[in-house]
């Protein structure tokens, strides 16, 4: 027993030490500009008609009281999801939205927003699903742009109607409950990544602090590994280097050799991880946007709940 404890401590110490030593040894590989652009990059291209900036923030009034000059506003709750049934925006609605923003087939779309680009990343996922290839995120999001004291504008912008046409839905980017269940049962090959907090993953809580409990079971999808989304970013909200990201996920067995399935609570935080794994690292990734609010409520699906928290028990 004591020997095992010492061994564990030793292993832990090694891990910590390697963690400290690693950054200095690591070559800082550049993030691919085809996926992530810096504030400098964007600031130099604000007048470029081939570049369209789209803000997706969740705090109302944020865009209106100052946005990156020329940016258009997409509202997550009404524009990027179906407001009636639980689904992503329909191809017709999305096409109309994107055309009104003056986006053409060959436009470079740069998304940014509040909350560490969570909802902007959802936007990037929807753009990809409907076949718009050149979609990128502004590194550090709204917070970094503001922190650097860059100009914002309150003037409304209007752009001539674009010609973007929604393509056939890229089903491989999206997973439904049966797809994930097949992975759990071993019928399909894949690795599931739960990007929620450790406390949510372990079933100690049903929803993050400040959020309503929307699932009546706690825990996670069996076989899923836990990498909270925030581990992919630096303190200032910018993405970590490609090398760091690759190591972060490789450590839990996500190395691109198998298809990856990401999920969170409602699919907004996991969009962020979807973006990291698919757009930055180039892995084959599907987002399970039903996420825990579907799985944790579905009847009869297997659940792992290490903490054993029982819903409703006094």
């Amino acid at each position: 027993m004591a020997f095992r404890r010492i061994l564990t401590l030793f292993a832990l110490a090694l891990l910590v030490l390697s963690g400290f030593a690693a950054p200095s040894l690591r070559a800082q590989a550049e993030l691919p500009e085809s996926a992530v652009v810096s504030t400098e990059w964007l600031a130099a291209r604000l007048d470029d008609p081939k570049v369209r900036v789209v803000e997706v923030s969740v705090v109302p009034g944020l865009f209106e009281r100052g946005h990156i000059p020329g940016a258009v506003n997409f509202v997550w709750h009404t524009d990027l999801v179906d407001p009636v049934i639980r689904d992503i925006a329909s191809p017709e609605a999305f096409q109309a939205l994107v055309r009104a923003a003056g986006i053409n087939e060959d436009t470079t779309v740069v998304l940014y927003g509040d909350n560490n680009n969570w909802f902007a990343a959802w936007g990037a996922w929807i753009f990809s699903i409907y076949g718009h290839e050149d979609v990128r995120l502004l590194d550090g999001g709204r917070a970094k742009w503001e922190r650097e004291g860059r100009a914002v504008s309150v003037r409304p912008t209007s752009h001539p109607e674009g010609n973007f046409t929604a393509k056939e839905l890229r089903r491989e980017l999206r997973a439904f409950l049966p797809d994930v269940l097949a992975v759990v049962k071993g019928e399909n090959e894949g690795v599931i990544v739960d990007i929620r907090s450790v406390a949510e993953y372990e079933g100690r809580i049903f929803a993050p602090e400040g959020f309503q409990e929307l699932a009546i079971r706690a825990g996670h999808i069996p076989t899923a590994v836990n990498v909270p989304w925030g581990r992919a970013v630096n303190e200032d909200g910018t993405f970590k280097s490609v090398e760091e990201l690759r190591e972060l996920y490789a450590a839990v067995g996500v190395d691109g050799s198998k298809k990856v399935y990401v999920y969170c609570r409602i699919g907004e935080r996991s969009s962020h991880t979807w973006f990291v794994l698919s757009k930055i690292l180039g892995y084959n990734v599907a987002q399970y946007d039903g996420s825990w609010t579907e799985w944790g409520n579905a009847v009869g699906v297997p659940i792992e709940n290490p903490a054993g928290t029982v819903w409703g028990k006094q």
């Binding site: 009034g61 209106e64 309150v154 003037r155 409304p156 209007s158």
Partner: peptide, 9 residues
């Protein structure tokens, strides 16, 4: 009206 024109054209 002036603010609305900017917030929601």
């Amino acid at each position: 009206v002036i603010v609305f024109g900017a917030f929601m054209p």
